[in-house]
Design a protein around this nucleic acid. Structure first.
Lengths: 243, 243
DNA sequence: CGTAAAATTGAGCTGTCTCAATCAATGTGG
DNA sequence: CCACATTGATTGAGACAGCTCAATTTTACG
């Protein structure tokens, strides 16, 4: 019997838990589990750093572990011929890179850093063992996979059937609400290190056009977006644009 | 000991197996398993019919089972405000509607029939029990989930960064190769009941424009597309357009 | 402090859309 | 099994959202 990983009153998003994006520490606390089933000690993992703007994992690379971004932001991105690139998702601090790595060692896309940061790679075999032995871990991971999937579907609908304005509004609202859930709003603003290039690659647009739309947002007092932070000034109006 | 579900020499795609899309019957044969772990008898399931062009399951409906389309074609589709619709995936005969239902009873999208057909709904609890008790079933289902996910990522890249011609070419090639894998090519052609509306809703285009692109394909002798069947005449050229 | 990366702005261009009319195919009821 | 009703496909003309190219300014960072 050792001390639990997090103090019992921590809410999801606590900085003690490396997998806070999954709320796993809390599950473990609820069940009276302790260190043995979470990252720090028993599941083997390796801690690494990454620099801003670098590719962390390359398209078609084979991984023998499941990486979790501890600090910093990253993105999963698909690189096409003649340099076109499409961002599939943003990975905010504390999130698992992609749950599909739990069931397939081959990464079909590349993971690029946005900011500098750190990640830990969990041993796949041990993580899967934990998953089969502890049902709540299984449930958490699979429901995280479902969330990933649902976000992908939303993105498909955005790209297929929404206008530039709607896509950008929804991107901002989506990240906002993820940060909100993880209790990472400070002074009414969130950290938002995405450059307009990222927004363009995520929404299937051009940086030139993204710039124009965002300036329209600014002029309409919908958002403040500068110095790597985002503040939503008029969320109702933004939601309306995102409809 | 009862007879195995499929004759041992069946390849994936055999019509005996209701979950042939997953190749589950073969796994079971390989392992010497028998009926108890596959649909027909032990896992409770209900057989139903659907009419062409009808919505089979509605967006936000809650399901207590996992449906598999046995015959006929369907599509999973997201319906937005002011009538815009985006097709997320096509479900060809023999495929599970969506693996996410294994881990979430709520369906965030709607399932619309293309042709008429039949489906079976498997009892969720029993399917999950089989999954945890029989590792190969677990692996098959999760790798099917990964496939679903990878296709979604491809679609995102298509919609975000490819031209109308490329999107349509890739849609045709994608379905072609799925049918090929399931050994459903006959006389160099596949069943292809998609209307141009479906292609438009899947590629984020307009039926008007889809018609123009497809006629360009026809004029270039790339494909034959009529009477609900598709024949690819010049696959290299089509792949090139899909790059 | 200097250099590289990012953002902005403007002018023109084009891929795809809208609207609208027509024609072909498919399905349904009597 | 035919006639009508519905759904799907085609075509053309015009419009526009978002793109390209290019120059300039601003911001970030080693």
């Amino acid at each position: 019997m050792t001390a639990p990983l997090c103090p019992p009153d921590q809410k999801p998003g606590c900085s003690h838990c490396i997998m806070r994006g999954l709320g796993l520490c809390n599950v473990l606390i609820d069940m009276g589990w302790e260190r043995p089933y979470t990252g720090e000690t028993t599941i083997q993992q390796k801690k690494s750093n990454f620099a801003a703007r670098r590719t962390i994992f390359h398209q078609n690379e084979t991984l023998d572990g499941v990486p979790v971004i501890c600090d910093g932001w990253a993105t999963s991105i698909m690189k096409l011929s003649n340099g076109r690139r499409q961002i599939l998702s943003f990975i905010v601090p504390g999130e698992l890179v992609t749950c599909r790595l739990l069931f397939d060692r081959k990464l079909h896309l590349s993971i690029d850093a946005i900011t500098r940061g750190t990640y830990r790679t969990f041993d796949l075999a041990q993580l899967r063992a934990a998953m089969t032995m502890v049902p709540p871990i299984f449930d958490k991971l699979l429901s995280a996979y479902n969330d990933e999937r649902n976000r992908a579907d939303q993105l498909i609908a955005d790209l297929g059937r929404r206008t530039a304005t709607g896509r950008i509004a929804r991107l901002m609202l989506d990240i906002w609400s993820r940060m909100e859930k993880a209790d990472m709003i400070e002074d009414g603003a969130i950290e938002f290190p995405l450059r307009q290039t990222h927004i363009a690659d995520a929404t299937g647009l051009t940086t030139v056009y993204v710039s124009k739309v965002i300036n329209a947002f600014r002029n309409g007092s919908l958002v403040e977006y500068s110095e790597r932070s985002l503040k939503i000034l008029n969320i109702d109006k933004l939601r309306q644009l995102a409809a």
